[in-house]
Amino acid sequence: MTEFFQSLGLTYEWAWGLATIAGILLIALPLMLSVAMVIYVDRKVWAAINLRRGPNVVGPFGLLQSFADGLKVFLQETIIPSAANKGIFILAPIVTFTVALAAWAVVPFSATAVLADINIGLLYILAISSLSVYGVVMSGWASNSKYPFFSAMRAAAQMISYEVSIGFILVCVVLFAGTFNLNDIVRAQEGFGLGVINAYGIHPLLFPMWVMFFISCLAETQRVPFDLTEAESELVAGYQTEYSSMSFALFWLGEYANILLMCILNALLFWGGWLPPIDWAPLYYVPGIVWLLLKTFFFFFMFSWVMATVPRYRYDQLMRLGWKVFLPISLGFVVVISGYLMATGHFG
């Protein structure tokens, strides 16, 4: 895109700057739009599984429901509790939202459509996603109220616990791909399965890793069955209890942007990203972004499906799963996979 702006007669610096801003907008705006639509999809899926109709009033099939909600929230008054720590109280939703957007900078939508094609893309995502806990912790503490505080405590412990196993799972993928660059990880999956299937996930050693990754993603984004931070039966609405209007909406948007990010990571790391599912020439005529979005949408459907069917974990069960099941298994797989790759001469 820099070349395009340069061709308009700008110097390289200005062209690069404009191109970057344009790139950010090209990612952020459709992302916000898709978050709005995805919330609608989420509600429709739950409704379908619960044999209800779901949103069906605003617009055709209720398609505009999210926009109506957004407008309502936007027009409300922002209430800051008098006992709150104001600066941090306001900062918290901003942090959540910013962090949720920042991670998208390295996501490759196709072989060329990526804002920052950096060497350590996966580490960057890991780093940024480990920051998302701050929004929750800060809001919980700054609200100066019991339930948000409990929620903050739970969030801090929960996210650290699951990040550990996510880290090990990603190491397994990196061992196979030999790179942290997300585009290269996707390319390495080309014809990986028996020379025909473009996916890491079908490898017998990586499939269990993917299952664990999916479950850890649920925990990392605090979705059911791990939504203890906003368990409405115990904590009202958890860390969001004291929030209203736009500050509340920012949490909401950030949360769904994170969920979408985790879905897209599932697709990129284990199921071939922007590659077609089968390594067959005609399928490559379909643009890569279509494949990627189809896969992402499928994983989002799985998120909704889980939400509509699985009951919530108890907190000690959550910790048990993270530390006593996922951590040893993922650590063991790192060892097994490195041994397997050494034995099969993968590293040459």
């Binding site: 350590i120 580490l123 780093a127 480990s130 920051l131 701050y134 503490w141 801090a156 412990a157 650290i160």
Partner: peptide, 26 residues
């Protein structure tokens, strides 16, 4: 040193400081 930078974020900001905050908040 982008690798060190990422590690700094993951380890210190993502884990150590969270635990710090966890203790300090209480």
């Amino acid at each position: 040193a982008e690798f060190i930078a990422a590690l700094l974020l993951i380890v210190y900001v993502g884990a150590v400081a969270v635990l710090f905050l966890f203790v300090v908040m209480m």
